[in-house]
């Protein structure tokens, strides 16, 4: 069992995950931010490896990705930085990014490097389900990595079942079909969609992301799911602050308390 699976064994609700982009706002920030987030009370982390053309992202994460690339962040450098990860951070860590950088690195090499660094899972929104199952799944399983798939309000029950079957971490429930950084959709339809997913009795925990930015949206998401992910709101906060590390405890406290 990896750290992510252990976490879900112990904790069933109000799980808080934070996304941030590696190499942003400065190249050496990656491990420092991870450490500060654990100390502040985040339950698990998603570290983004940047891509020049992030299709699923809104302006905030597009910008952090572009700055990170300009700062010199690459997958090679990220894996060097992550050599220190497990001496300083104990909570589960996932890597999140797009297929092309991972494919250029070599998916088998990527999975091995991630496992060696103590990474527990991977989220690659544009890696197709079929290709994962047929080509890449073995590399993930061999290295003990949980691959996480997204589900949207338009995803069919049949496909959700298939995703649940192929998942061994959690199901990433999108709060609406949107790019990252929009405000939370709180319509009745969305509540019905969460209920629809729950009624399928998935074996994996449900974590809601996209549009979670503060205490209200975090609590609302937790009415339906085991936890929620904050991305753009956090990236925006650290991007605006000079002494960005000192803002992290307060950011987490505001969501938790």
């Amino acid at each position: 069992m990896n750290r992510l699976q252990q976490l879900f064994e112990k904790k069933k609700n109000n799980i808080l995950s934070i996304y941030f982009t590696a190499g942003y706002p400065e190249i050496g920030a990656t491990i420092k931010i991870a450490e500060a987030l654990e100390k502040a009370g985040a339950d698990f982390l998603e570290i983004g490896f940047p891509y020049s053309d992030p299709l699923a992202d809104g302006p905030v994460i597009q910008n952090s990705s572009q700055v990170a690339i300009e700062n010199g962040m690459t997958l090679k450098l990220l894996f060097q930085q992550l050599k220190d990860l497990r001496t300083r951070v104990t909570i589960p860590v996932l890597l999140m990014g797009y297929a092309n950088p991972m494919i250029q690195y070599g998916v088998a090499n990527f999975c091995k490097a991630a496992a060696d660094a103590g990474v527990d899972g991977v989220i690659v929104p544009d890696l197709p389900l079929n290709e994962y199952e047929e080509i890449y799944q073995d590399d993930f399983i061999k290295n003990g990595l949980s691959n996480v798939f997204l589900v949207t309000p338009q995803t069919s029950n049949e496909r959700i079942k298939k995703i649940d079957e192929l998942s061994n971490g959690f199901i990433y429930l999108l709060s609406s079909s949107s790019t990252t950084g929009k405000s939370l959709n709180v319509s009745d339809e969305i509540g019905e969609y969460y209920e629809r997913v729950k009624s399928l009795n998935p074996k994996n925990p449900l974590i809601i992301g996209f549009g979670i930015s503060d205490k209200n949206s975090f609590m609302r998401a937790n009415q339906y799911a085991n936890g929620a992910i904050v991305g753009s709101a956090f990236v925006k906060t650290i991007g605006n602050a000079k002494d960005y590390l000192s803002h992290i405890p307060q950011f987490i406290r505001k969501i938790r308390d």
């Binding site: 891509y51 020049s52 053309d53 090679k76 092309n100 950088p101 991972m102 250029q104 690195y105 544009d126």
Partner: peptide, 21 residues
């Protein structure tokens, strides 16, 4: 170009060693 993924398909594209377009 080298083989990779651009705009939703596996194709040949101009990219860096790190897979940036």
């Amino acid at each position: 170009g080298k083989e990779g993924v651009l705009h939703g398909s596996r194709t040949i594209l101009m990219q860096t060693e790190d897979g940036q377009v």
